[in-house]
Design a protein around this nucleic acid. Structure first.
Lengths: 391, 391
DNA sequence: AGAAAGTTTTAGATCGGTCTAAAAAATTCG
DNA sequence: CGAATTTTTTAGACCGATCTAAAACTTTCT
């Protein structure tokens, strides 16, 4: 296909056509439609039709052109094509924090759907910086993306969004909401998940429940807190302490729980912002001589890989981020297709996963670390599964 | 040029300049150079010069044009620009498995360097499928990327690479090598890291050392095994069992170790492919009644966030993936700059991190789970740091 | 055979920038 | 002041595809 040497005898009529070394058939620079057209003795327009599999062209011609393309090693130039036709088969994905494992799954979901449709994604990282975010959104537009999926940086103002919107680029917000901005949105139903998990704790008899991880100004936090409080309110319970965590990682959860469990009078259950915080919390509990799952119930959110294999295994809830990604991609494609459709909000329901960390069998004080194991499999075993209502 | 409606009152001494809602000044479609030119009473060429900050244009003119651009809300169209000028300020990043946390860091490192240079990256996922990889490489080229960073799928053939290379697109291979393909490469020095960690185990007196995680046909594995064996050979030790792990995750390590430690006669130390496998191994050890760090030494690779906060904390080695990413991006930029330079191989040295899992104080049989904690901080504490020689 | 209808191919404008070479304007100088 | 020089601006080709409208070629039918 590429370098085919000594092809001379082949076309006979074209006698000395190819006594030049390797890339003989290929003109100097990149091979273009014109080169193909010349080589196949048809017009550029015809080649273009073949390229786009138009039914207009005769089979014989098609074959001839295909052969020429193969022989010259033609590579389609989408930029040129797009310049004329408008669409670019390209979308931009602007992430607030690219290293979050959750977002990797999310990205993968987007890529699944887009790749199938022949799209490619520009992916960039704002690092929670609204200024950088602005620049990147502009840059995406300069590159002529057909649409954008945005996981907004903390404190993204609605008017910053309006820019992207005014420029007429379809835009789907995902994972985090931008307050007061009526756009397409796709994200997990954190509120419902928190309600589920809190209800579960209440049903186990807990009355003093703390929340660890409150402080950031991002919608996933406010939604989780809302769900937490809603469940408490339903049972006329008062909220336990809401402890701040600026970073929301392991060390953060550890520090928060060290403080919270310093004295004698502490909550009997802890709802954590996410699994990673919960691991930190459990570490601190152990250090304080408390057994997670027996002395204090701990629940998280996300169901990261570690959750099922940690000891005690972590009760948690999750919304598959890959599913969120797929939904976001599909919604964006729909919007690109029909720009004038009304904004849509897609909230993906959570799944509750009950494990040992909230008290395997309530009242039983087994050493959690020696609790019976369900054999780890590729998909960690789930004892119970619940589905929240779709909003 | 485009359709510009009711623009009449606007220029009347600037009077009503801004009583029209928002995008009033903007012509119907996208604003182009021609629109700016018309609005500023200069030629398209002049606007282009202003755009590219050419010193040729007079200050007065520049100001006038800038004003026009601001007023009409001009968005630069890189695709059009690139079509003419060749370069696209775009690169492709083709990953074998997009959800690997390590690769997220790696990606972030690439993005750091590229964003600073005004590049954007197309990022896609081959899912270890060489066919998909081929298609994606082609698609990148169709989009006219200036270069490609490839983390090759398992079993990538050198000739598959040759395609990308022949088409004249600069290409840097990262993280995994493609056998027999002499291209730019950037990756961690796994061999040196494995040597360090194995030497450490030997120095602690271990003589029967197993390796858990051997079976995949990827260079990170063969390099790690090579380093492992090199250290053993230096001390005239025989290798313990090399146990396969197809998936290289937690469950895999768990399963492998369950088998390995079923009988009485087992290795005294285990070198794991990576940290995650090591966690699975330690779980299995605990189940078998063995205490990791006391009865059996366990070491990993990567220094994932969990490693320092696991109990026992995991001895491991790592090469910051973000650094690898940055190096890869820089090398690619260099190659784009100077296509004819000779291929370069960059191997980033590892850092050894000694923690409790290989026996805090050799001989001491404290319950590892209750071993003293060094307070977790944002960057987990490191007792020892070593640097391998640069290859 | 010639008109009508259908099928295939093509010329040439076009997308929105860049780039070259030359024109126009401003400045300097003998 | 006019020529020489320097600075600034511009017309128009060009990148490589798409797209429209018309031309060229077949086939069908009277």
């Amino acid at each position: 296909m590429k370098t085919r040497k000594g092809r001379a005898p082949e076309t006979a009529a074209g006698a000395l056509a190819s006594d030049i070394p390797s890339a003989a058939h290929a003109p100097a620079g990149r091979v273009t439609l014109n080169d193909i057209a010349a080589h196949a003795n048809v017009s550029r327009a015809t080649v273009s039709l073949v390229l786009r599999k138009s039914p207009l062209v005769a089979d014989a011609t098609r074959t001839k052109v295909d052969a020429a393309m193969a022989e010259l090693g033609y590579v389609y130039n989408r930029r040129a094509a797009n310049l004329r036709s408008g669409a670019s088969r390209t979308i931009g994905l602007v992430l607030c924090e690219i290293t979050t494992p959750n977002y990797a799954q999310f990205t993968s979901g987007i890529d699944d759907v887009l790749a199938a449709e022949g799209y490619v994604a520009f992916i960039t990282n704002t690092d929670e910086d609204p200024v950088r975010q602005r620049n990147l959104l502009v840059r995406m537009q300069e590159h002529g993306v057909d649409g954008i999926v945005l996981v907004p940086a903390e404190d993204t103002r609605p008017d910053a969004m309006a820019d992207a919107h005014c420029a007429g680029v379809p835009c789907v917000v995902a994972q985090r909401r931008v307050a007061d901005f009526p756009a397409d949105y796709v994200g997990p139903d954190y509120a419902a998940g928190m309600e589920l998990v809190t209800e579960h704790l209440i049903s186990l008899g807990h009355r003093n429940i703390a929340f660890i991880g409150g402080v950031r100004r991002i919608s996933p936090l406010s939604e989780r807190l809302a769900g937490f409080r809603k469940a408490l309110r339903r049972h006329r319970l008062k909220s336990g302490p809401v402890v701040p965590c600026p970073v929301l990682d392991r060390a953060d959860g550890y520090a928060a729980a060290r403080g919270l469990f310093a004295g004698e009078d502490h909550p009997s259950a802890v709802v954590c912002y996410n699994d990673v915080v919960a691991f930190g919390v459990m570490l601190a509990l152990t250090e304080r001589g408390l057994v997670p799952g027996a002395d204090v119930a701990v629940v998280g959110c996300d169901d990261v890989a570690e959750a099922g294999l940690h000891r005690p295994a972590l009760t948690t809830f999750t919304t598959d981020p890959r599913v969120v990604g797929r939904e976001a991609a599909r919604l964006l494609l729909r919007r690109i297709e029909t720009p004038e459709r009304p904004p849509e909000q897609i909230v993906v329901p959570p799944r509750l996963i009950i494990r040992q960390s909230c008290g395997a069998a309530p009242g039983q004080r087994s050493r959690a670390a020696h609790a019976p194991l369900h054999p780890p499999s590729r998909t960690p075993g789930r004892r119970t599964t619940a589905r929240a209502a779709h909003t």
